[in-house]
Design a protein around this nucleic acid. Sequence first.
DNA 1: CTGTTAGCGCATTCAG
DNA 2: CTGAATGCGCTAACAG
Lengths: 341, 341
Amino acid sequence: MSNRKASTAATISDVAKEAGVSTSTVSYVMSGNRPISKETREIVEAAMRRLKYSPRSSARALASSRSNVLGLVVPLRADVNVGVVMQFVTAVVTTARTFNQDVLLLTQDDAGSIERVTSQSMVDGLVMMDIEARDPRIPVLAKLDKPAVLIGMPDDPRGLSCVDFDFAGASRTAVRHLVELGHRGIAFIGSPPASLRRHATYADRALRGFEEACRELEVTHVSVACEANSKDLARALDKVFAGPEAITALLVHNEGLLPILRENLAAHSLSVPEDISVVVIAPADVATSAFLPWTAVSIPAMDIGRAAVEMVMDRLSLAKPAELRLIAPTLSEGASTAAVR
Amino acid sequence: MSNRKASTAATISDVAKEAGVSTSTVSYVMSGNRPISKETREIVEAAMRRLKYSPRSSARALASSRSNVLGLVVPLRADVNVGVVMQFVTAVVTTARTFNQDVLLLTQDDAGSIERVTSQSMVDGLVMMDIEARDPRIPVLAKLDKPAVLIGMPDDPRGLSCVDFDFAGASRTAVRHLVELGHRGIAFIGSPPASLRRHATYADRALRGFEEACRELEVTHVSVACEANSKDLARALDKVFAGPEAITALLVHNEGLLPILRENLAAHSLSVPEDISVVVIAPADVATSAFLPWTAVSIPAMDIGRAAVEMVMDRLSLAKPAELRLIAPTLSEGASTAAVR
DNA sequence: CTGTTAGCGCATTCAG
DNA sequence: CTGAATGCGCTAACAG
């Protein structure tokens, strides 16, 4: 029985003594890496509980060369929607915990943080958000010996695993839906100019998908980048409706505009969906939490984040090869689309 | 000179051999914990460069009982503004790096994560956001041997360090400013009901400060909680203006309402600041990034986050006692306030 | 100013 | 099925 004052935290050998077994036995009941008789297992577990034992991650990491920590590189840019970022972060952290991994938060602008945490073996693997078409960090990541997963689809993954929403397919799905409703003139309100300029892959691909679908279906179309504020939205709408095209529908890929979109359309004497139909590409909860739910092609942030972590873990534990995964879009009808008048 | 193939990463003894010194000398050139002659220092540093040496954090942590990692507990609640959360997170991560610390991301709903990461010595200290008046996690934190800093002011800090913006003072400052402009009827549009119900300390204190200031200055006042959406804002404004009080000014403590506030006031035929003055309590960048900048008492997220990290590090390195820090408010005039007509 | 060496706490071979 | 012994890579006494 235990009668020692734990002046300092219990170690594995304290537990071993307390249970009357060797340290290796204690280690094996924790890892399950070799069969332990039910009897001794219970003795050991009781001892651990009595001593409130919990293993030091540093000692474990040193001996096993595994930190049980994943690095997550998040963007801090003004042109990315923080709500969406948070959704991904939540998904990654939640999923990581199911693999008994913790998450180290790395910020994009902290140059060299990727190399630092990997060379110091602080992390077992990396997940990187907000990938650009020719992201300069990709060659860096490719050289590392740690598995890395990109959330986004760069031009050349260099053998890295990638996962992303099929933004091109999302645009196509949206356009097809609008065309089925009879719309023949569609405008795309896209990401902020900054996102397009640096070729954030979601921005590029959503736009390209839109243009391709419209050309293919012979739909009149126009596209405009837009900052997430009322002033720029006004400018964008002016441009859209000032043109010679008869625009009767909008595809909006910009979460920051959603809270102000309906009002700004009203300023053009356009009510949704009577005068103009709107489809948005956005996470489901932001699309449905609006006053009236938007018809949306939902960005499944949770699925993507989960997939990213699963792919890192696969490469870690199962030594699986790199893979590219594109998550298929689905459209859910809300109150913002109607047949053209 | 180096001529060994680094089949595995270089260790401190590799560097020692390469430099022709002992491992402790290498260790001391890294830590600076004892004087090293300039000459040998340069030899060692050259060897480290040649071997691309970088120390393993796990070995270092094991030997020094310091992980160089801080835990950050972030809220994932629907009723807190994600933009504000991100500001704090950014501030904490950025500041932590200046102390050579990394940040482990812990989510609030992952019960037990606090105890897990501390008992495993994964973190040297903790920063916790979104504190409630009688937060159940406080007794837990107080029992730990790791320093913890709360961002928020609970009823009973239990000997923990706390830092926060002076939300009560912010409200007072705002009310005083409005009174000086001649306003004698002010409405407070506050945090979502959920935030008030769970007594998030920022929500409670801003409201209390408002009510106290108004009573003191004998100003007619009314306050209303509000979700961050257009529908609930409409309801809140209805309630404010339907009452018998002559409301000529608003104090808004709800970042999510800012993008839609002006339009919703317009729906009441009220234009800002001609018909109604508005002061907001919000981070500076969200207050000024609006179409027209709001007159604001700015929440200095960067200062608060920085202070939180500094306070953890003080307790860690200097063994300083716990302290309570309240950051003073300052009002900056924007385009949303004017003298009452 | 520098070297030697004993741990830090755990995982894991090798014996039994 | 279990135990003893070795090493993971580094820090920090202690000893010059």
